[in-house]
């Protein structure tokens, strides 16, 4: 009797609040993921049990995202908010304040062994300009599959805490996915082990691969210390090219979230072609080369090992 009454009341409120989409309609766990990679992890663990809102979508850069009123509203009705932390989502605190959300705000890097950011930050390239993102720690922890597992475990715990009824399902989903991550991790290690020891260095525009470097032993050079006021100065680029020669760097990569002008300039001056696009901070749209995390890591690893394997 009581239950039926509640159901009725819920239906009624949906009619009156027609501008609010979805989640109020059912009793699914309402989850907000700050950006696409965490969104994929959440989907892997939550499956159909959750109503998922991802704020910064495919090819979006969480560092420079401008949050919308709809994002604050998504937070307001969320049960769980999943964030990376380490200052990746500069917009999140103000969004949490504006939304007045009572959701659990989960920082998935809390249990990750973080890397200090050399120089106190890293560079992004937007419209041909280098933009410095200050931060004591490198936020791109998901670039190591070992860390991705910590994210997934954190999500499993957060979902179970917020929705005890669904916990069994979340645990089963997480177990399956963690096994897939283990497979991925070994694959990456195997494909890099197959490379000649002397071919382990590539170049990227934005230093987002520190965790990949530490985990898998590929060295990523990037134009650090370039002027924030203009394109990389000739001296910076010359220095990088010298470093590339010394380290026998064979691949130079653009990134999906960044504009590629700077790496194209470096490639031109180094006399090599841009070897492809790496997915650093966001997935590709569905149908692209990196629509989910597993595919993204395989795509990146394949792109890197292909460039380094060639003579």
């Amino acid at each position: 009797m009581t239950l039926r009454w509640i159901k009725h009341a819920v239906t009624f409120s949906v009619i009156s609040l027609i501008t609010f989409p979805a989640s109020a309609q059912d009793d699914k766990l309402a989850v907000v993921a700050s950006f696409s990679i965490i969104g994929d992890f959440a989907y892997q663990v939550g499956g159909d049990h959750i109503e998922l809102d991802t704020l910064v979508g495919p090819d979006g850069d969480a560092h420079v995202y401008e949050p919308k009123p709809a994002d604050a509203m998504a937070l307001a009705r969320a049960d769980v908010v999943l964030t990376n932390g380490l200052e990746l989502e500069g917009f999140m605190n103000r969004l949490v304040t504006a939304s007045g959300t009572e959701a659990d705000i989960v920082t998935l890097t809390d249990h990750v062994q973080t890397r200090e950011e050399p120089g106190g930050g890293h560079y992004h390239f937007v419209n041909g300009e280098a933009i410095f993102h200050a931060g004591a720690h490198d936020p791109h922890a998901w670039q190591s599959v070992v860390n991705a597992k910590i994210y997934v475990e954190g999500i499993r715990e957060a979902f179970c805490a917020a929705d005890a009824d669904g916990c069994e399902q979340y645990e089963a989903n997480a177990e399956r996915y963690l096994a897939e991550l283990d497979t991925l991790d070994s694959e990456i290690r195997d494909s890099i082990a197959a490379l000649p020891e002397s071919n382990r260095t590539v170049v990227v525009g934005h230093s987002a691969f520190g965790y990949y470097e530490a985990e898998y032993g590929i060295r990523f050079l990037s134009p650090q210390g370039v002027s924030t006021e203009s394109e990389a100065s000739a001296a910076d680029v010359a220095g990088l090219i010298r470093q590339m020669r010394e380290a026998n760097a064979r691949g130079i990569f653009a990134e999906n979230i960044s504009d590629s002008r700077l790496v194209e300039q470096i490639a031109r001056e180094a006399g090599i072609d841009v070897a492809g696009v790496l997915y650093s901070d966001a997935l590709s749209p569905a149908g692209g080369p990196a629509p989910d995390y597993l595919t993204m890591m395989r795509h990146n690893t394949h792109a890197i090992t292909s460039a380094l394997a060639s003579d």
């Binding site: 401008e66 949050p67 919308k68 009123p69 604050a72 917009f91 103000r94 969004l95 304040t97």
Partner: peptide, 8 residues
């Protein structure tokens, strides 16, 4: 007036 925190 333009908000500095949310695009609105």
């Amino acid at each position: 007036l333009g908000s500095k925190a949310v695009q609105v």
